[in-house]
């Protein structure tokens, strides 16, 4: 169901990486793919009628435990986003440098190494 949509988004990103010939489009595919995974992580903790997993003043503990959504996936997604943020910055930096060297973003022309 809704997990399937994540899978479709993942495959869209994967398609972008495999088929596109432009470095920037490949990077976008990468980002879409990672977003699909992040979306999946957040969905894992979804619960109908759930509340924020932060204890408010004057809230009863038992009600909080019953209603609050699982906070762990939200922490995990934050960590994953940070990591992917770093990777994206790095890949953009490499792409800029590649453009500097080759004068193009087309990977058909960036082929000094044999397959």
């Amino acid at each position: 169901m809704i997990y399937g949509l994540c899978l479709i988004l993942f495959l869209v990103g994967f398609y972008g990486i495999v088929v596109k010939r432009n470095l920037i489009k490949i990077i976008m595919g990468l980002i879409i793919m990672e977003y699909a995974v992040h979306l999946f992580i957040v969905l894992v903790s979804y619960q109908r009628g759930g509340i924020v997993p932060i204890l408010q003043e004057g809230q009863s503990i038992s009600e909080f435990v019953q209603l609050a959504v699982d906070p762990l996936p939200q922490v995990l997604v934050l960590t994953a986003i940070i990591i992917n943020f770093g990777i994206t910055a790095l890949v953009v930096a490499i792409a800029i440098r590649l453009y500097e060297k080759y004068g193009t973003f087309d990977i058909n022309e960036i082929r000094r190494l044999r397959g």
Binding site: I82, G86, A93, I96
Partner: peptide, 18 residues
């Protein structure tokens, strides 16, 4: 630092975050 490096177009290897 990352924003500045990327906008200055003068990259170093210190792109490490976290």
């Amino acid at each position: 630092a990352m924003f500045m490096y990327l906008s200055l177009f003068r990259l170093d290897e210190g792109e490490e975050t976290e």
